[in-house]
């Protein structure tokens, strides 16, 4: 009888552990990656991507998690959409082969399989950024994190949201136009994100 009980516990333990893994779908309407870089050594220039999708999982008990984000590179915007007297807008230039080359590389992705926790909350996500066909490790720092019922659905939907930052050298991904003086090599990313629990 005792052996049977131990056997049942052993069999059901992985199921109990699996049940603690929460999976979330990223809210594409409130998940917005922004970027900034130096411009001509005078000012910091900012832009954003208007469309990002993905999913993440989190296991608070085991303090593990995963993250997959896909950013549509053609959705980038710096707010410059009117050509006026110029042949092309800044956004059109940024979408071209000099920078994000969105026709050849319509997406950039971030994939993580390791999450470091600080207390009960994720702190640093170890993952890789794939940009222009090149994959390099880029850690993501979670600066703000909160989970709870979504007030917009009277608590029927459970969500996690927050902010995360990262930085990388664009030259590592082969994006070299304007280096070294016109446009900075160091790119900082800042992202607001939401995920709805499945």
């Amino acid at each position: 009888m005792k052996r049977l009980a131990i056997g049942l516990v052993t069999l059901t333990l992985p199921l109990a552990t699996a049940a603690q893994v929460d999976s979330y779908n990223i809210d594409p309407f409130h998940t917005v990656p922004y970027w900034e870089t130096d411009h001509l050594g005078f000012a910091t220039f900012r832009g954003r991507f208007d469309r990002a999708t993905g999913k993440f999982t989190i296991d608070r008990a085991a303090k593990t998690g995963t993250l997959e984000i896909t950013i549509q590179t053609a959705s980038l915007s710096t707010g410059d959409t009117d050509r006026e007297v110029r042949p092309r807008t800044r956004d059109e230039h940024l979408r071209g082969p000099d920078f994000f080359n969105v026709v050849e590389f319509p997406t950039m992705t971030y994939s993580a399989t390791s999450v470091k926790f600080k207390g009960d909350d994720p702190d640093v996500i170890e993952g890789s950024l794939t940009l222009l066909g090149v994959t390099k490790p880029v850690p993501l720092k979670v600066e703000r994190w909160k989970c709870g019922p979504d007030p917009r659905t009277a608590g029927k939907r459970y969500q996690c949201g927050g902010n995360a930052t990262a930085s990388f050298r664009r030259s590592d991904f082969g994006m070299k136009f304007g280096l070294p003086t016109a446009i900075g090599d160091e790119v900082k990313m800042w992202m607001s994100f939401y995920g709805f629990r499945n």
Binding site: P87, R88, E92, H93, R95, G96, P97, D98, F177
Partner: peptide, 8 residues
């Protein structure tokens, strides 16, 4: 260059 690619 006029077509948004200075590199090309």
């Amino acid at each position: 260059i006029l077509s948004a690619s200075a590199t090309y």
